[in-house]
Amino acid sequence: MDAADPSAVTDDARRRLARDFHLLGVRPGDTLMVHASIRSVGPIPGGARTLLSALRDAVGAHGTLMGFASWRDSPYEETLDGRQLSPERRDAWPVFDPANAAVYGGFGMFNELIRLEPDAWRSGHPDASMVAVGRRARWLTAHHAFDDAYGATSPLGRLVEAAGRVLLLGAPLDSVTVLHLAEAIARIPGKRRVSYQMPVLDAVGRKTWVRCSNHDSNGVLDCFATTGGIDAVEAIARAYVERRPHHTGRVGQASCHLFDARDLVAFGVSWLEDRFGIDGN
């Protein structure tokens, strides 16, 4: 191998990263939801694209990767719980097109790169959309109800159904999106629910506004919606890391966790119900 050849250097980095993923516990055929902090991995020849290629190599041709996309132009805050856009802003607001709408910037470059892959699929809920590539990508994203953003019928529910796993690639514990499923299905009273409006394309390609609603992902109970406090997702994830077996290791320079999605959600449901449920519900 010619060390001066950029493609050779990139290929070598890709192989090393794929090996790191396998040492962490990623397996060929895995259905994997990824939360990635590219900066934490450190310098990589070819950057984030090499990292994505290495992860695709690690799960192989029969594997699947999924990421949380949402939408860069989501009018969630502007229409939340009855807030109204002016007619002029409403008319000018871009429509959600799953094929072309950019990923919400707060979720990082990695998920945007998944969206841009030639074989990518994306779910149809603008604010809670998921992107996926690989064997199960179409199935994971095929249906995403406007009133069940993170519940049992959502892509998160199908991730658990598929015995999927969750990879935190240098990402913090408050980013474990699948725990919103635990919030949605846990039998606890007083769960907060929000509604908002989203512009989508109708059956003939015209812009129309639809009402969406879901359990509040910013604080499913009042006690988790306080400014400066940790939310239920982070609280559950911290408890899970302390109490349940899972894979840990490094990919590049990044500290990583690899979780079983079904076990993580079941733990989250029990954690919530034990603390906030009603006896006998």
Rank of each mutant, 00 (worst) to 15 (best):
K207G: 07
A48M: 06
A162F: 10
D5W: 14
S129W: 01
L65N: 00
A239K: 05
L264K: 05
A225Q: 07
Q84T: 15
H246K: 03
H247I: 09
L65I: 10
S129G: 09
V251Y: 00
C256V: 04
V59E: 08
R193A: 12
R250Y: 06
W93M: 06
I114H: 00
T31P: 04
G134T: 06
A61G: 11
G277M: 11
V59K: 07
S123M: 08
D81H: 08
A54D: 04
L156V: 09
V233C: 06
S255M: 06
G249N: 02
D263N: 08
N218P: 04
A152V: 09
L258I: 04
D263P: 02
A120F: 07
V26H: 00
A128S: 08
S86F: 15
P28T: 15
A18L: 14
D222Q: 15
W93F: 09
M130S: 07
W93T: 05
G25W: 03
S53L: 12
G170K: 03
A254M: 04
G252V: 07
R39P: 05
S70M: 01
D2H: 14
A239G: 13
G105L: 07
H247M: 11
E273Y: 07
S37C: 14
L85R: 10
P155V: 13
M1A: 14
Y104D: 08
F276A: 04
